[in-house]
Design a protein around this nucleic acid. Structure first.
Length: 460
RNA sequence: GGCCCCAUCGUCUAGCGGUUAGGAUCCAUGGUUUUCAUCCAUGUUACCGGAGUUCGAGUCUCCGUGGGGUCACCA
């Protein structure tokens, strides 16, 4: 069975790049009816925070990517790691190193001065003497000293590094706590991972982890190293680039399905298809099709996708979502009409909410430019005539209102705009927005007349 | 700097030795619409450079250039 995972370290919020990697892993699992596991890599007690853990979990909940089984916390598994450290020590596959941090630093400086690659020199690898007093040793693993360490990457293809690139790295610190590459290999093996999909910034960790796999006799999973997402300038995504926090997209009024659709197309494609429902993604995604090159992201497409998903969102769901943006249409008698009139005019839920608010409440101020353009000489007279006619009639439907407008325009032999423009400013405060008959049908006769009268009073 | 990865319209991408190099987004124009938006149509824009292999190269090889990753008792 296919088992994948996402393994963030809780040092901050979930960012957009992490979400894409998680999505790829999740899709791979779902595609194969497998499991998608979540593991929190919190071995560095100093940098972890509970808020970060919560934020990550929340982001997953928002996008609807559920994990299988319990969340695994590495901080709760130190005993397990200790067991394997002792085992390797006993088997002579790892050893204690009494080099101090200062000595290591000195060695490094010398190597840099000689223009060499910085690496541990293996001085305690075969140490048999009496260990120096007063020094808590670290534990280092014995890495192969010659040949190449390689694997086949599902994205990059064959990949290998010279054994000299991998030194006897530390698996347990002086305080006994295990290090990253060691615990990742153990957890991935113990959790039964078949496919490890992660950012290609981990490419060089893989040979190290393979050393651990081999020392412990674990089966090596298949790796996929996904290229990074860059900003529009092609540079590494950083906090300076604005919204990198997944939850920021929620606040900006994006739909999770739009964000996921956007992300799945970054580094992956299926012919010319642009729109993918979650089910389609699951059906079609294959990690072996992931692109090798990095991609930079550009919000235009996300915005377009978001507009698409808003347009196609079922009404009831839209109503529920809109509540978080200050609009409550629950139980509103004209709910459908309002949504139909505004749906296509908002690229985000924020914009959609604004559009709806303009209908729900009378304008508190009128757009200056629009007023200047619309309220020419005879505007007041035409509007008054229209209001009068409205008062006498009993318009119910959109069509009724439309006919009323047509009557006036025809009788007076004027262009539609002569009535339409000032009317629109009166009702909405500006010259843009939904159809007039649509708006009036929503507002009803009374509110329409009220808004017209108010506009005449304040604008003319 | 060492090692390694990558390279098609501004952006996301298709292409897997023979195509007028396709789609999407953005932008522009036109149509639909009383306005805006939607929708529809049309258009501009790309194979990083140089050698080689081949009858033929965006596609294969090499070199260069550019970008990126990585070299911790961080993860």
């Amino acid at each position: 069975m296919t088992v994948t995972r996402f393994a963030p370290s809780p040092t901050g919020y979930l960012h957009i790049g992490g979400l894409r990697t998680a999505l790829f892993s999740w899709l791979t699992a779902k595609h194969n009816n497998g499991k998608f596991l979540l593991r929190i890599e919190d071995t560095d007690m100093a940098r972890n925070s509970q808020e970060a853990k919560d934020a990550i979990l929340k982001a997953f909940e928002w996008v609807g990517m559920s994990h299988d089984g319990e969340v695994v916390y590495q901080s709760e598994r130190f005993g397990l790691y200790k067991k394997y450290i002792d085992q390797l020590l006993a088997e002579g596959k790892a050893y204690k190193c009494y080099m101090t941090k200062e000595e290591l630093e000195t060695l490094r400086k010398e190597q840099i001065a000689r223009n060499e690659r910085t690496r541990y020199d293996g001085r305690y690898r075969d140490f048999k003497g009496t260990p120096p007093k007063g020094i808590e040793p670290v534990v280092r693993i014995k890495a192969p000293q010659e040949g190449r360490i390689g694997f086949i990457d599902g994205v990059k293809g064959e990949f290998s590094v010279d054994a000299s690139e991998v030194d006897d790295f530390i698996i347990a610190r002086a305080d006994g706590s295990p290090t990253y590459n060691f615990v990742v290999a153990i957890d991935d093996a113990l959790m039964g991972l078949t496919d490890v999909i992660r950012g290609d910034d981990h490419l060089y960790n893989t040979p190290k982890q393979i050393v651990v796999y081999q020392a412990l006799g674990f089966e090596i999973p298949r790796f996929y190293h996904v290229a990074m997402i860059n900003n529009e300038q092609g540079k590494k995504l950083s906090k300076r680039d604005g919204a990198t926090d997944v939850m920021a997209y929620k606040a900006m009024g994006y739909l999770p399905e739009a964000l996921l659709n956007f992300l799945v197309r970054l580094g992956w494609s299926y012919g010319d298809q642009e729109i993918f429902s979650i089910d389609e993604m699951i059906k079609l995604f294959d990690p072996n099709d992931i692109n090798k090159s990095a991609s930079s992201y550009n919000l235009d497409k996300l915005l377009w996708l978001n507009a698409y998903y808003i347009k196609h969102k079922p009404e009831s769901e839209l109503v529920a979502l809109l509540k978080e943006f200050g609009v409550d249409l629950q139980g509103h008698e004209n709910c459908s009409m309002i949504l139909n009139a505004t749906k296509e005019r908002g690229k985000t839920l924020v914009e959609l909410a604004e559009q709806i608010k303009r209908i729900l409440a009378a304008p508190t101020q009128y757009d200056e430019k629009s007023v200047k353009k619309a309220f020419k000489a005879e505007a007041k007279e035409i509007l008054s005539a229209f209001a009068e006619r409205l008062a006498k009639a009993q318009p119910q439907s959109q069509e009724d209102f439309h006919l009323l407008m047509e009557e006036i325009v025809k009788e007076r032999e004027i262009g539609f705009g002569k009535l339409g423009m000032p009317l629109r400013v009166s009702l909405m405060g500006s010259m843009t927005g939904a159809g007039l008959d649509e708006i009036m049908a929503i507002l009803g006769k009374g509110e329409t007349i009220k808004r017209i009268e108010r506009a005449i009073a304040t604008l003319v």
